[in-house]
Amino acid sequence: MLKAENLHCVYSSGLIKTVKNRAVSGVDLEIFPGETLAIVGESGCGKSTLAKMLVQQLAPSSGEVFFEGTKLTGMNWKNLRNFMGKIQLIPQNPDDVLDPKWTVERSVAEPFVLCGGFSREEISENVDALFAEVGLSVEHKPRYPHELSGGELQRVVIARALALKPELLVCDEATSMLDVSVQAFIVAVLKEIQKKRGLGLVFITHDLEAAKAVSDRVLVMYAGEIVEEGKDVFDSPLHPYTRALLDAVRYVSLDVVLQEDDRALPDDFLGCPYFRMCRERTGACKEPQKLRDVSGRLVRCWKV
């Protein structure tokens, strides 16, 4: 359904002494209808940048995104608008995307108003249906964002994202700010909607257990690159980084405090991005690593 080819994103800052920061480098991915793809990695590994590029909020430095065969990158925004409703982003913090001075009803109705062609009654019916779909009651409608709890706000954002019948939802850490019980509730809501509407779901998170619980396929990112991709990544991790992440989740070997990664590899370093932190590194890791297919799993490590 959605396909990304060789996506790169470079943030540069400073006018005279330009500092370039490779946030995402060379990501290829494909999402199929009705599938849940989890993207996991620590903070700062480029997950959110990737999400923004997938939903066309950010133009990639190079690379292309296709939606059902149509190239989205480089399209002018008039044509792009036709696709915007089909790919929706659910951000981490609902406060960032809801207008604090609008009632949540008005926020959810906004996509219909922007699209045009709906009468007032139709809009109100649609909004009611959306509220019911995400498990909010009618009494929530006239309230303002500050009057709702985090879980309720996240449901409002989901309702709005569903308004234009999207085919793909990209959830960028949509549950990581919430409590476990609320998290479970939001995930249940998303899963139910996915089942009913057959949507594709991209679930970006740093919580591996949550990723394992919701996803069909997992993609592990480190320093802007995919290091491992496949179906049962968590049962038999192959890349040393995936193993380190899993150990961290299960609190294995707590007697060692891991050294902080300053990630300041030289600009011309083309080898494995995990080189500094890896406990199994050798000289051969300084060579560029390719994603290789190891019995149906893509892994970026020559040792496997």
């Binding site: 990581s176 740093h206 961290a248 707590l254 007697d255 060692v256």
Partner: peptide, 12 residues
Amino acid sequence: GVDVLKRRNIAA
């Protein structure tokens, strides 16, 4: 609001 690796380090 801390990711898994940092959380593990705090635990350590």
